[in-house]
Design a protein around this nucleic acid. Structure first.
Lengths: 207, 207
DNA sequence: ACTAATTACTGCAGGAAGTGCAAACTTTCT
DNA sequence: AGAAAGTTTGCACTTCCTGCAGTAATTAGT
């Protein structure tokens, strides 16, 4: 499952002018959003401001991103690729369920800022402007549903619900952690570590 | 902590006409919001519609509640009472931290729909209209900060962060659970149970 | 190279959430 | 009754976001 090419195989093909321009404007918007939010905070970085910074019309902005947060994240929405879904469903039952969920979610989150945008920039914004966390969580809600659907193929609905909640909580904790040097290591690892620490805290709280 | 009266003690005193009217309009708005959201879903229940259902102006609506969700919940915001804070800080250290957090959060959530509104109504809306969950979580974000601040008095910032994240995840799971008969029992108990189950899932996922 | 079909960009009109301000109205106090 | 204090309302305004229709740019066909 390592070398699956999503494009129709026959040579990477020169990306057309159109394609290049699309990437260009999307990147422009994304970078402008990142820059302005970093400088002024989410509240005081209006979509209009981002648009003029990026040199596009407001309408174009919403052609690329459905919301302000999504522009900051650099993704119209979180999506599960076929490869990711297959990898997750390869194993069955509850064994490694939580670990696999971490891998899945980590992989999905890693899709942010692909097209040549400095990943450090997005990390900075997330850690410096924590007010954005609730919006991001809300933004990820749609994804959550999809993941629960997948998890339900490996355990009961009830436990699937809780397992996913737990992993999403790990994401949440990532957004609230101060500064976050750990964001550099594999996000998946980081998530799993968070889950394990939570588990430990819960257990210790009992004796 | 069972029989603590929040009012200044000296006789319950006849609530003035003004006070009664305020409660009346707040209740009217809350009930209208509940009713319309239950019928049409969050998306299709506009604030304007809620206002005319409740017989108040739009402006008055926002005098009572800062947002649509807050009107559904029936609270301008989640608040920690002094009694609750004191009860939480009575114990020290990590022992029972998670349990105490569940009690704290459970108590806070229990403040919804006090003034004679059928609690069943709000439960119904939450379980029938799950799309509202992300908004509620976002609504509770402010509270989250306050709770973390409290938790930090009993453990390290890092572990406080994670412990609170875990308990908030339990709330999240409550919002996503199908139908939820358990909402009837003490919410606190329910939260703790969710945490424990998550802990179990995480642990089992390892062996 | 010129035309035709796609596809992207833009403006405009408008809906919905939410805020500040000042006028109008109600309850309360003296 | 009249002043003081508090509540409700209308109005103008900002921001996010969507549908629609027209324009402009890219690409494909000849």
């Amino acid at each position: 499952m390592t070398t699956l090419n999503p494009t129709p195989v026959p040579a990477a093909a020169a990306p057309s002018l159109r394609e290049r321009k699309k990437v260009e404007t999307r990147t422009a918007i994304h970078e402008a959003a990142l820059r302005l939010v970093a400088e002024n905070g989410v509240e005081h970085a209006s979509v209009d401001a981002i648009c003029s910074e990026a040199g596009v019309s407001t309408r174009t902005f919403f052609n690329y991103f459905p919301s302000k947060v999504s522009a900051v994240v650099g993704l119209p929405s979180f999506v599960i690729t076929d490869a990711q879904r297959d990898a997750f469903l390869e194993r069955d039952g509850e064994r490694w369920l939580v670990r696999d969920l971490c891998a899945l979610v980590g992989g999905i989150m890693d899709a942010t800022s692909r097209d040549g945008v400095d990943r450090q920039a997005i990390r900075d914004v997330l850690s410096r402007r924590k007010e954005i966390a609730p919006d991001i969580i809300k933004f990820a809600a749609e994804l959550r549903r999809d993941i629960v659907a997948l998890a339900e193929r490996r355990t009961t609905p009830d436990r699937a619900q809780l397992a996913v909640t737990l992993v999403m909580a790990a994401v949440d904790s990532a957004l609230h952690r101060p500064l976050d040097p750990a964001f550099d290591q594999e996000f998946t690892e980081w998530l799993f570590e968070a889950v394990m620490t939570m588990q430990a805290i819960a257990r210790e709280s009992l004796d």
